[in-house]
């Protein structure tokens, strides 16, 4: 008889402790984690804006409104504006084929889509030089027809597309796989055609995933450095993206201007993180409801 109260007595105060560490251990672990994050993430973020504004607002404004900077902004936006719609179309097509159908070699296809993530950005740039550069496969033909791709805008766009290929597809594939095919099948059986099904059934279902993938794709497209650096040729005002402009200014020891331009990209990163968090909380709300 004595065993019952004993068990209750020992388990009641114990229960709070068993799946948790002692308060001081929790306090130390939290402090350690937050110090590491402050040192490695927060400090660099603060430093960008601090260095950018070190010489005052006038220098800052001048650095981001000079013609070369404006040309860099324009080129960065252009490259993203071309790369994102193409990768959106690719992402939707790939996810439709992979998530809605069963076919052989599917897992190989999924791995191939992820391939650009595991290729060094420098190698990504190099392979386009090997094809379109003067000594490349298509070099003589391109020169005859007076088309330049490497050290010109098309090369930058191509390199940007390469490094951002997987972003939208890899968001959509698991999402559409989880949603299954019942709704689309019902639409088809009720007489809708394929495009109607895609437009009225599938796309509304995946809109948050699409937005999420697009935001990540955009951040990488606008910020890519290595791949673009190889194919760009660094011609100021012509083939300079924002990321490359930062490098040029920095190498000219124009630190304040470099950080001013860098702060624009850091701002883009912050907006990306905010939107990403917002979408994640929207999706979490939806699934919990």
């Amino acid at each position: 008889m004595t065993t019952i109260p004993l068990l209750q007595a020992s388990s009641a105060p114990h229960k709070i402790l068993v799946t948790q560490e002692s308060p001081w251990a929790r306090w130390i672990l939290t402090l350690l984690a937050l110090s590491f994050l402050s040192l490695f993430l927060l400090l660099p973020l603060v430093a960008v804006f601090f260095e950018a504004l070190k010489k005052g607002w006038d220098v800052y404004i001048a650095a981001i409104t000079e013609p070369d900077a404006l040309a860099a902004i324009q080129l960065t936006l252009t490259a993203a504006a071309i790369a994102i719609p193409l990768n959106l179309a690719f992402g939707i097509a790939a996810a439709w084929a992979i998530a809605k159908f069963e076919f052989r070699g599917k897992s190989i296809l999924i791995s191939l889509i992820d391939l650009p993530f595991s290729v060094s950005p420098v190698v990504a740039g190099l392979i386009y030089v090997l094809i379109f550069g003067l000594q490349g496969w298509m070099g003589p033909w391109l020169r005859e027809h007076d088309i330049s791709i490497i050290f010109a805008v098309p090369g930058i766009v191509l390199a940007t597309i390469f490094v951002t290929v997987p972003f939208i597809a890899r968001e959509l594939i698991p999402l559409m796989q989880a949603q299954g095919t019942e709704e689309e099948e019902a639409a088809i059986i009720l007489g809708a055609n394929g495009w109607q099904t895609l437009w009225y059934i599938t796309l509304p279902n995946i809109k948050w995933g699409l937005l999420y993938g697009t935001i990540l794709c955009n951040a990488r497209a606008m910020g890519e450095f290595g791949a673009v650096s190889v194919v760009s040729g660094h011609i100021r005002g012509l083939t300079n993206t924002l990321s490359l402009h930062v490098e040029i200014l920095y190498n000219e020891y124009n630190s304040a201007a470099a950080f001013a331009v860098a702060s624009l990209l850091a701002l883009l990163a912050l907006i990306t993180l905010a939107l990403k968090t917002f979408i994640e909380s929207r999706v979490a709300q939806k699934t919990s409801r």
Binding site: L34, L37, L41, L42, L43, P44, L45, A47, V48, E51, L216, A219, M222, G223, E224, F225, G226, L242, S243, L244, V246, E247, Y250, S255, A258, F259, A262, L265, A266, L268, A269, L270, T272, L273, A274, K276, T277
Partner: peptide, 26 residues
């Protein structure tokens, strides 16, 4: 906590050249 959680992805979102010059400055 939510702010910290969002900040974790900063290295994904921050262009590498920006990370490079900032870390160098620090």
């Amino acid at each position: 906590k939510r702010l910290v959680d969002a900040l974790i992805d900063l290295p994904f979102a921050l262009p590498t050249s920006v990370a490079g010059i900032t870390l160098t400055a620090i």
